[in-house]
């Protein structure tokens, strides 16, 4: 404050909102946080709720019948379970292979890359930032003719596309491991392999779990990869292709239902995956 100024008590005299604002950290924090939170409530939560409502309505020709019905759910589970299961299966395989291939690379960068870590991390993330459409297309170009338009091709393309999402979380969890733990294990007589399975791997599991979920959840709804790789053939259709078809034929309630059912399946799958992994990690002692 400038020379000789007395205390400015204007804020203190009135027991106003301003004074409470100055005093309360929570109030100031929420004021700052609220615009983004409101954005997400309006732009994300509200649309999802309305979509949920739609799933209980019925499209009849050009009119929307807003009487409550479960007909859409019956239709989805009757008609689309093959595609739903295929989507789950493809997404699960993609997540698994991306992590399986990405783990050694993350390990290499964390433990062996030494001074070139930064370059490696940039090299590994650049593909992620370049056009997804063109990457998938280019992959299709170099694929053997007979592989195209198969679910395996979709898995390969996804494994390529999501590489960064596997490597980065695993790298972070490996990087966090205290190196003296490994020295302690060596000191206690563990060789390199046992050290890996008893120390490194269990400690990197959080990274593995977040990598798996980060890949599995969004790939279930992937549209570009099956469409481009499969060239529009139903053998590679995933759930997004179905939803896109339903939107095209203006049956939004059915599309909403399909989307919601697939999300419920994803949630269940993730839940069991995490539970299974927890059980498995207990056996690594």
């Amino acid at each position: 404050m400038a020379a000789g100024t007395a205390v400015d008590t204007s804020a203190a005299k009135k027991p106003s909102w301003g004074a409470a604002f100055t005093r309360s950290e929570a109030l100031r924090g929420w004021t700052l946080l609220s615009p983004t939170t409101i954005l997400m409530v309006v732009g994300l939560a509200a649309p999802l709720v309305i979509m949920l409502l739609y799933s209980f309505w019925k499209q009849e020709g050009l009119t929307l019948n807003t009487d409550f019905t479960l007909a859409n759910y019956a239709e989805v589970s009757g008609k689309y379970y093959t595609v739903l299961l295929r989507s789950l299966w493809i997404a699960a395989l993609a997540a698994f292979f991306t992590v399986l291939l990405g783990y050694p690379v993350a390990y290499y960068v964390a433990f062996h890359a030494k001074n070139s870590k930064f370059i490696w991390l940039i090299l590994l993330t650049i593909p992620f930032w370049t056009s997804y459409l063109l990457r998938v297309f280019a992959l299709r170009v170099i694929m053997p003719e007979e592989l195209r338009a198969t679910p395996a091709a979709v898995v390969i393309a996804l494994t390529h596309a999501w590489a960064a999402f596997a490597i980065l979380p695993i790298y972070v969890s490996l990087e966090k491991i205290d190196r003296t733990l490994l020295e302690a294990a060596a000191d206690l007589g563990d060789g390199a392999v046992r050290r890996f399975w008893r120390i490194t791997f269990p400690l990197s599991l959080p990274g593995v779990v977040s990598a798996m979920t980060l890949i599995f959840v969004p790939t279930i709804g992937d549209y570009v990869t099956p469409s481009l790789i499969g060239g529009g053939k139903p053998a590679t259709f995933m759930i997004a292709n179905i939803i896109q078809g339903q939107i095209k034929s203006n049956d939004w309630p059915l599309a909403a239902t399909t989307a919601i059912v697939s999300m419920i399946m994803v949630a269940i799958a993730v839940y069991f995956f995490v539970a299974a992994l927890k059980a498995a990690s207990r056996s690594l002692r």
């Binding site: 649309p47 309305i50 979509m51 969004p218 790939t219 997004a240 939803i243 896109q244």
Partner: peptide, 16 residues
């Protein structure tokens, strides 16, 4: 938004 499939976000936004 990082964790939900884009198709879901797209459909929900389209509807609203």
């Amino acid at each position: 938004p990082l964790f939900i499939p884009e198709i879901l976000l797209g459909l929900a936004l389209l509807i609203i």
